[in-house]
Design a binder for these strands. Structure first.
Lengths: 219, 219
DNA sequence: TGCCTGCTGAGACTTAGTCTCACTTGAAGA
DNA sequence: TCTTCAAGTGAGACTAAGTCTCAGCAGGCA
């Protein structure tokens, strides 16, 4: 009776959908999957964890991406890495939506999910902090950027899970571009040069040209 | 033996500090407080909740402050409201630091705390969203601002809990001012007028004057 | 005195999670 | 072919959180 790990996850999601999370005991899941209670806990550690089976692997992938990043700014690297997470869930499809239904209705699962999300935030914050000069302003900025990237991700993911958007790729690009604009040097408290352009071109075109140049400049 | 609610909290913190969270059972706490197990659960609902006894009241105070706010911008109102939370914990003093030690070492408590923090973020996000024009850009911005305000608060609180700073008032003002600068109109994607000033004053003074004028302008 | 209300304690019960022990299986090695 | 070792599995005891029910008990009131 080689009931593998995946059978347990399948059985759990099926029973949760049929009877609800609270009304499903671990014994029920184990029995439905054809394994013992012992095996269930050995495999997933807790009833909550079976909902997030490949969380650790995903976090590891994000960490690897960050480590090997060649982006020209810390924020760009984080923005790039966070897409891995979004696309992972999008690729899960209906399974991700089942999980969303569960986490929306069961407090314990929502807490667990938040805890997972905060792990990304801490990872990003640590990475962003390493690029700073160690000043309090830089540390705080790293904190704000990490929180904002995660918030942008969460917004796009949540809207996709609810079926409010069709093209998550496009939405995440836009949302993360907004984050980068918000935290772009010159956007925050920095002051630099004032460039006076004398031109007959419309203001909007001048603005667009300057923005593009600054974006290409990177840092 | 009229053992009130506060006795339970006192007993719980004392035992947690002496033996650790996991090694202290609810029966231990109830016995130490001179009440029954039943009374413990009736009063606090769970072993975790006894660590955060006045959480709901605090959230209510923040909500009231937001509702009655006359700040001239949504972000300013939220920035003002979040200080209630910080100063509440600062006023708790050593008790807040005991809680920090517990939440730092016990995963279940950390999750509970995060869940509490996210409730503020959702509250702020809802408030900020009501000031927007309903566009996706405005909604996303509300999300980013709420996340950043909470992140700034958390940073200052954490540093105070660790004893890294002496003047939380000053630190929170600085941190929240940084948030407001980051999200100030003109800092993000907005474009307006370019004002050319001809003056012999130093650039820094001109910048300061303009910033102050913009800050007073509000929105 | 009798009644009602709210708080309390006792204790049974369910379930998550831990731990220990015994069994199987399958591969490596003499 | 027999031995042995490792890894995975199941059975079941045990602890503790949390729920629920019932019974008592104090105090206010007619």
């Amino acid at each position: 009776m080689s009931a593998g790990r995946s059978d347990i996850v399948e059985a759990a999601f099926r029973l949760f959908a049929e009877r609800g999370y609270d009304a499903t005991s671990v014994d029920d899941i184990a029995a439905a999957a054809g394994v013992s209670r012992s095996t269930f806990f050995r495999s997933y550690g807790s009833k909550e964890a079976v909902i997030f089976p490949d969380h650790d692997a995903l976090l590891q992938r994000v960490e690897d991406r960050l480590r090997s990043s060649h982006a020209d700014s810390a924020l760009a690297a984080v923005v790039d890495a966070v897409k891995i997470v979004l696309f992972h869930y999008v690729a899960e499809g209906e399974r991700a939506r089942e999980r969303y239904r569960l986490t929306s209705s069961v407090t314990a699962l929502r807490e667990r999910e938040l805890w997972g999300g905060l792990r990304y935030q801490r990872l990003f914050r640590a990475y962003l902090g390493r690029w700073g000069d160690g000043s309090e302003a830089a540390e705080l900025n790293a904190e704000l950027m990490a929180a904002s990237v995660v918030a942008a991700h969460n917004r796009v993911l949540r809207r996709w899970l609810r079926g409010e958007i069709e093209d998550p790729q496009r939405e995440i690009e836009h949302a993360l571009a907004a984050v980068q604009r918000t935290f772009a040097p010159g956007g925050a408290g920095a002051v630099g040069a004032v460039v006076v352009v004398t031109s007959s071109a419309p203001l909007a075109r001048i603005e667009a040209a300057v923005r593009q140049a600054l974006a290409e400049d990177g840092s």
